[in-house]
């Protein structure tokens, strides 16, 4: 078989086309830039905070010193409540409670939301039956349901998890649904032309196409779920970070309140960055430029 290359004389395969970039200073900087800038930024922020609260005339009840907040966070994360204690002052205990609930809730939300969304995208009968309910519940502020679920389930972990599931499930459903619906027609056409049956169309085209959508759904679900966690715990229960915020504020331990808020931010950002990483990993072609 004669190659096209034999007939073309201009160079197409210069071995120098792909060059080793190596570890130049620029390359190292390019990779670590984000981390370095953020760290310096945060350090300056907390130092300014410390200075303002030390030398400014600020009531520590409203704004504690940054160092006091870190102190509280450190102590809270390194101690556990003694066996059999009625109330734990340990942040770690409450964090583990909330984190476990969040993960359980997200797990259940995925288990319902992913198949649900895929079915809605794939079958127009399921879609037309379910979509009014999905839109109705998705547009209802979930916080409005909390009193109702307290009535149904009491101040229990089940109630808290239910609220988290309800908060997280709709973005997952809607994203999976949209993914299936927007699968590129030409990709489906190509698969059909080359012999795909219905099942293969789903496994080889629709699912891989929808995967990044599902991951963004989960990403939004994490944000909503975290709101659900805090709301459920603020309203009812004697456990979790939401409860701890309430309790520390009631007892005028503002440093603790700030410590818990900081922990919530860190947890949320870590989870969201994890899903971003996952998204970039499974769908590099989407080449999402994050804001």
């Amino acid at each position: 078989m004669s190659k096209v290359a034999d007939q073309i004389t201009y160079e197409t395969d210069d071995p120098n086309r792909i060059q080793d970039v190596g570890w130049t200073f620029r390359e190292i900087w390019r990779r670590t830039r984000g981390f370095v800038v953020t760290s310096v930024n945060l350090i300056i922020f907390f130092i300014l905070w410390e200075i303002v609260t030390t030398y400014g005339n600020i009531n520590s009840l409203f704004l504690p010193k940054a160092s006091a907040m870190f102190q509280e966070l450190w102590v809270g994360m390194t101690t556990r409540a003694p066996e059999g204690a009625v109330f734990s002052g340990s942040i770690l205990d409450h964090f583990l409670h909330s984190f476990k609930n969040l993960m359980t809730g997200l797990g259940i939300a995925c288990a319902i939301g992913i198949p649900g969304g895929l079915l809605m995208g794939g079958n127009k009968y399921v879609e037309s039956i379910l979509s009014p309910y999905v839109w109705a519940l998705a547009s209802l502020p979930r916080i409005a349901l909390v009193p109702l679920f307290i009535l149904f389930l009491g101040f229990t972990t089940t109630m808290q998890v239910t609220i988290i599931v309800l908060s997280a499930v709709f973005p997952i459903i809607i994203n999976a649904w949209a993914g299936v619906k927007t699968t590129e027609k030409s990709l489906l056409a190509a698969a059909k032309v080359f012999g795909a049956n219905r099942t293969q169309l789903y496994y080889k085209v629709v699912l891989p196409y929808t995967l990044p959508f599902i991951i963004s759904g989960i990403q939004q679900g994490i944000g909503r779920g975290l709101i659900g966690v805090v709301i459920a715990e603020l309203f009812g229960g004697s456990n979790g970070l939401g409860y701890l915020i309430q309790r520390s504020a009631d007892t005028f331990n503002t440093a603790m309140t700030f410590a818990v808020l900081l922990l919530l931010i860190v947890m949320s950002l870590s989870l969201i960055n994890f899903t971003r990483w996952l998204e970039a990993k499974v769908a590099p072609w989407r080449n999402v430029n994050h804001l």
């Binding site: 590129e184 030409s186 990709l187 056409a189 190509a190 698969a191 080889k204 085209v205 891989p208 196409y209 769908a283 072609w285």
Partner: peptide
């Protein structure tokens, strides 16, 4: 052969 290539991006 498709006008818009229709390659699976993944």
């Amino acid at each position: 052969v498709f006008q818009d290539y229709a390659l699976l991006p993944w």
